[in-house]
């Protein structure tokens, strides 16, 4: 796979949204390799945290990145950052694997439409938004951050998290509410 260094000149390797767009528009295998190296080990960790056996976690990480390749044309950097989009793919793969949550089909599905050609500044904006969000999450009060982390990295609804932390359900709900209110201002309106 010798081309990785060449792509650096065309596409910034530290900008995953631009890499996904390169996959979508040019079928760029080097861009895909960079995405794989960055995200597959993280997706594997995510699957392990949520209780997948190591072989399954490895397989789901593979499958996640292959889905990135196949669905790259559906990626809309104005709506979601790269890590957000890949998180959603990983989450959906896990849901299917454990037959947990349901993603029902409607006769008319507004999310199945391919994304329009993104303007360059939209990509930069989404990337910057993601960086600000990560910084803000590091600054969350620990009790709020704890509830957010458990929500995403344990297969538990908020009612179970409340039991685990020996907190009233209302306290867990208000911590979630406070954390989201704080973060919401940073990610803006994604509707």
């Amino acid at each position: 796979m010798g081309g990785v260094s060449e792509v650096m000149t065309q596409t910034r390797a530290d900008d995953p949204a631009a890499l996904i767009v390169a996959v979508a528009t040019r079928g760029d295998r080097d861009a895909f390799a960079l995405l794989f190296e960055h995200f597959a080990p993280r997706v594997k960790s995510y699957m392990l945290r949520l209780g997948a056996p190591p072989e399954t976690a490895e397989e789901l990480a593979q499958e996640c990145l292959l889905t990135v390749w196949r669905k790259a044309t559906l990626f809309d950097p104005a709506r979601a950052g790269a890590s957000t989009w890949i998180f959603a793919i990983a989450r959906n793969l896990r849901i299917d694997a454990v037959r947990r949550q349901r993603r029902p089909r409607f006769e008319d599905d507004p999310t199945d439409e391919p994304a329009p050609e993104p303007p360059a500044d939209a990509i930069a904006f989404a990337a910057e938004r993601d960086v600000r969000l990560r910084e803000a999450m590091r600054e969350l009060p620990p009790d709020q951050a704890e509830v957010i982390r458990r929500s995403f990295f344990q297969d538990k609804a908020h009612s179970e998290i409340a039991r685990e932390l020996s907190l009233p359900l209302g306290t867990v709900k208000s911590r979630l509410r406070l954390a989201l209110a704080r973060l919401r201002g940073l990610v803006g309106d994604l509707a």
Binding site: F39, A40, P41, R42, V43, K44, S45, Y46, L48, R49, A57, E58, A61, Q62, R79, A80, G81, A82, S83, T84, W85, I86, F87, A88, A90, R91, R129, D130, L133, R134, M137, I148, R149, F152, F153, L180, L183, R184, V187, D189, L190, A191
Partner: peptide, 23 residues
């Protein structure tokens, strides 16, 4: 739907900060 997208962005940020596990 927009609020779910915002919460997914939180999931995306957590995915960035999680430690890597080599494949």
């Amino acid at each position: 739907r927009g609020r779910v997208a915002q919460a997914e962005a939180v999931g995306g940020a957590l995915l960035e900060e999680i430690a890597s596990t080599p494949l």
